[in-house]
Design a protein around this nucleic acid. Structure first.
Length: 594
RNA sequence: GGGGGUGUAGCUCAGCUGGUUAGAGCGCUGGCCUGUCACGCCAGAGGUCGCGGGUUCGAGUCCCGUCACUCCCGCCA
């Protein structure tokens, strides 16, 4: 018989009755009846009830065990009597009658209860992460994550992609986020950087002729955390392909994403292939942002013309100064009480907007404080534009375009949630395409790259030379699911001439570009294939699939919001000898005076 | 860097308008219980009310500061 176990704690069934079995696991729960003791023994796979009574010499040893101690028990498998069957356990028709028991490891009293689904404070959970991970919910989430990653690997490989590793110690990249730096011992005063993403490497892999690359890639960015953003590190399904158009990238990724979400989505419906493609400008107009939650059926429209020149001066004079009015149709809102509209108005004020104007339609007639400013003709136009004609309400946001989009988007989310319009049982995917290549930096007035400086501008060199830079679009795209940005990607700029020109518009001269991107540029000068790719976030995909609101719930060993690992005690000071070796001297920030 | 929330027993929380000895559940320790499955019953131990200062006859409670966790803004392709 095996030293530790003949079966897992999820293996025994009624057909095993009569056998001698050996199980090892954690003491999940004890039910002590004095002379009869039940132990729920748990391992990775499940739970089996084990029984011992006081006539057994092992009784006292087991009776003394605290919860979460590790024990190996051996004994006969018995069919339970009909009244004692536990239908909630897969092993509930049998139990193990303990004849021998060996304590493999004793547990101290627990700082958090493993056998409970109670909410615990984040600090306790992170400090004792190994205990939290034993608990069902987190255990399942991490298991799911592993299965998702395996399935991604299989699906990518089947589509002809090849997995490669790229360096973790690399050079600092001038664009994007703050780098994590690693001091060089051999080169005093010089630093490696951890990759923010394997962006340049994957392009170099294409230049090297490997055609289709993917990697479950760790990415490191020294930026502040959010609920959906780990501090420090996260993982991407990093993808790059040669000789492809934007549509080829979409067609390669859609079946993988669709397949994953069908496989692990537990019956929720998934947007059929091909996913809708929504131009950036259209998304901003209709949804107020570039990561629309399409489970919300509300679509905004521009109704500036409806309000222009009316006697409602708040809107009409703002329009004269360049503001726009966006309508947020709210089907069914005519049935809501007055407090619903007041609450939304209060919320709008808290968000810094002037308020949230509205017109209520019931039986085809417009009512509400501002409806009197619209004559019949304008009212008809409004009904036509918003699709709200007989029953419902229309909310209005009036501001300069960017602010109207932003706030309208928030209001759309809010109203959709309040009216229970969100289709919770769905995964709604879309591509956002045609991002602008450049935007104006509001503080400096300078032209900056909107997204990736390595993206190919639509229209190529000609567009860069003759068009208004702010009108140039890039072959740059995001994939969005249920309002979560999963990835961004692009067809890359593989031509040095276009790269020099693209950077010069953003204020970098040829020398600077060569200095900063020598590796990349050099490679492009020796025959680079047209190529492009994307990089969906693994953590966020698993978050969506697990139905979690927080990325720490799908991360095995996360750090706190302040980027500390409470379990391992990182970051931590190091010995002065280590610092000397690295040619580093600490310069502490001044301590605050009180 | 900024704004909000939380911080009371090992854990989750209650503690009113400032007023006697700060409570409950779980866990822990001891006792009783042979068919439970969140077993039940009895008893006990366990507290720098995050920390520092202030107001007050009196502070868990009010004020100021600070620290930790968290949510958000900035930041982040």
């Amino acid at each position: 018989m095996h030293q530790y176990r003949t079966h897992s704690c999820d293996a025994l069934r009624i057909t095993d009755a009569g056998k001698i079995a050996r199980l090892s696991g954690w003491v999940h729960r004890k039910r002590d009846h004095g002379n009869l003791l039940f132990i729920d023994l748990r391992d990775n796979f499940g739970i089996t009830q084990c029984v011992v009574d006081s006539s057994n010499s092992e009784f006292q040893k087991i009776d003394d065990l605290r919860l979460e101690s590790v024990v190996c028990v051996t004994g006969k498998i018995l069919r339970r009597s009909d009244e004692t069957i536990n239908a909630t356990l897969s092993t509930g028709e049998v139990e193990l009658i303990i004849s021998d028991a060996e304590v493999l490891a004793e547990a101290d009293p627990l700082p958090l209860q493993v056998n409970s689904d109670m909410d615990y404070g984040e600090e306790t959970r992170l400090r004792y992460r190994f205990l939290d991970l034993r608990r069902d919910r987190l255990h399942q989430n991490i298991q799911l994550r592993s299965e998702v990653v395996s399935s991604i690997r299989r699906r990518m490989t089947e589509q002809g992609f090849t997995e490669f590793q790229t360096p973790i110690l690399t050079s600092t990249s001038p664009e994007g986020a703050r780098d994590f730096l690693v001091p060089s011992r051999i080169h005093p005063g010089n630093f490696y950087a951890l990759p923010q993403a394997p962006q340049q490497f994957k392009q170099l892999i294409m230049v090297a002729g490997f055609d289709r690359y993917f990697q479950i890639a760790p990415c490191f960015r020294d930026e502040d955390a959010r609920a959906d953003r780990s501090p420090g590190e996260f993982y991407q399904l990093d993808v790059e392909m040669s000789f492809v158009t934007q549509d080829d990238v979409f067609e390669a990724l859609e079946p993988v994403l669709h397949g994953i979400f069908v496989e692990f989505g537990e019956g929720k419906s998934v947007t059929p292939i091909p996913f809708p493609r929504i131009p950036f400008a259209e998304s901003m107009l209709k949804y107020g942002n570039d990561k629309p939650d399409l489970r919300n059926p509300i679509v905004m429209t521009d109704v500036t013309n409806v309000w222009s020149g009316t006697d409602f001066k708040i809107f009409s004079s703002a329009i004269e100064k360049g503001a726009v009015v966006r309508a947020i149709p709210a089907p069914g809102a005519d049935k809501m009480p007055r407090s619903f509209f007041d609450k939304l108005n209060d919320w709008a004020r808290e968000e810094g907007a002037g308020g949230l104007g509205y017109i209520i339609f019931s039986d085809g007639e417009g009512k509400g404080p501002i409806s009197k400013f619209l004559d019949t003709e304008r009212m008809e136009q409004l009904k036509k534009l918003t699709g709200i004609a007989d029953d419902g309400a229309v909310f209005f946001v009036c501001d300069i375009e960017a602010e109207a989009c932003r706030f309208g988007g928030l209001a759309r989310d809010r109203i959709g949630a309040e009216l229970n319009l969100i289709q919770e049982d769905q995964f709604k995917f879309c591509w956002i395409v045609d991002y602008p290549m450049y935007e104006r930096d509001e503080r400096t007035g300078r032209l900056i790259f909107s997204h990736n400086p390595f993206s190919m501008p639509q229209g190529g060199l000609e567009a860069l030379e003759s068009d208004d830079p702010l009108k140039i679009k890039a072959y740059q795209y995001d994939i969005v699911c249920n309002g979560v940005e999963l990835s961004s990607g692009a067809i890359r700029n593989h031509l040095p001439a276009i790269m020099y020109k693209a950077f010069s518009l953003a204020g970098y001269n040829k020398e600077e570009v060569e200095l900063r991107f020598s590796g990349m540029l050099n490679a492009l000068k020796f025959g680079a294939p047209p190529h492009g790719g994307s990089a969906p976030g693994i953590d966020r995909m698993v978050m969506l699939l697990a139905g979690e609101q927080n990325i720490r719930e799908v991360t095995m060993f996360p750090m706190t919001q302040q980027a500390q690992d409470l379990m391992m005690g990182a970051p931590a000071p190091v010995d002065s000898e280590r610092l000397e070796e690295l040619h580093i001297r600490i310069s502490m920030p001044p301590t605050k005076e009180t």
